[in-house]
Amino acid sequence: MNRWMTVRRSIAAVLGGLGLLAIGLVAAGYDPGAAFGALFRGAFGSWYAFSSATLPRSVPLIILGLGFAIAYRSGALNIGGEGQFLVGAIAATWLGGMMGGVPPVLAIPIVLAGSVVAGALWIAIPVLLRLRFGVLEVISTLLLNFVAEALVSLMVQGPLQEAKGIYPQSDPIAVPSRLPIVGGTRLHLGFFLALALIGAAWFLFHRTLLGFRMKAIGLGPKAAHLVGRISVGSLLAVSLLVSGAIAGLAGGVEVTGVTYALFQNLSPGYGFTAIAVALLARGHPLGIVAAGVLFGALEAGAGAMQRDAGIPAVAVYVVQAVTIIIVLLADATLRRRPTPAAAT
């Protein structure tokens, strides 16, 4: 019962976001019918659109959403998914370029492991700053996004630039390091990897002491420390590191599964969209898949909308923002409902 209410509210949030976008488009003088038509065709209009535009775009959102959710459950806000994604992509590009002649069963794990390590190292800076100096991870992870963006720019005009040296982009990664693809589509192994991660996260939070403790430090750090005898700082660090590692993996999967190369604007803000995904799913692993596919569809449709209806793709940010806000509002309203014990 409770779960269905949550699902209904999440759907209402998305509809609210789309509704507000429609109002905004009308106000700005666009034809919302044409816009939504293009959006829908781009996302679900054909099997190819769904399997090759929507699903591949949902992969980074699902993985990044999971990364955000893991830290969020422990009471930490990792708003640096975008940056961790980018350094993961850098690492995957660098390693992927060296995998010529290596069998794929070795090349792919090596490249993805590299992106995991890169993401973890990138978030290790905020973790260290939080534990040693008390700097809030919210701000430090956020600031590092911009550093990562500049780093990508530096890489594609420096060490990782294509051999021809014309465009600011890398050479394609070696073939063995590319993820296998479902025939006739652009759907790659990363999608199934994402589903496997979701399953692992579900098991972690529902069946293990570690996952339970992560939730405990998020909801009641003092009680977790005094009653659970948990070292809150260490567990928070672990949680953030895992969060960053997963975000790094998302970058690696994007390079090995979709782009095969590194370039500027590799991410159209996946790291931020993923926050909306995780919040919409309220951190529930299966919900992240649903919300990830939904927002993947929005991303895919946004391209078609810009092409066919002349509406800038950034317009979908409005949908995301409104979705986040409606979910937050619903939760805040629930929180305020008085309980019998509190009414004294």
């Binding site: 905004g24 488009l25 700005a28 666009y30 806000l77 708003i79 803000g269 931020f272 926050i275 909306a276 919040l279 509406i311 800038p312 793709a313 950034v314 317009a315 979908v316 940010y317 409005v318 949908v319 995301q320 923002a321 409104v322 986040i324 806000i325 937050l328």
Partner: peptide, 16 residues
Amino acid sequence: ITGTAITLGAVGVTGI
């Protein structure tokens, strides 16, 4: 999170 959402929304609105 509200602040992040407002910033996200501002990117979209200014884009349109």
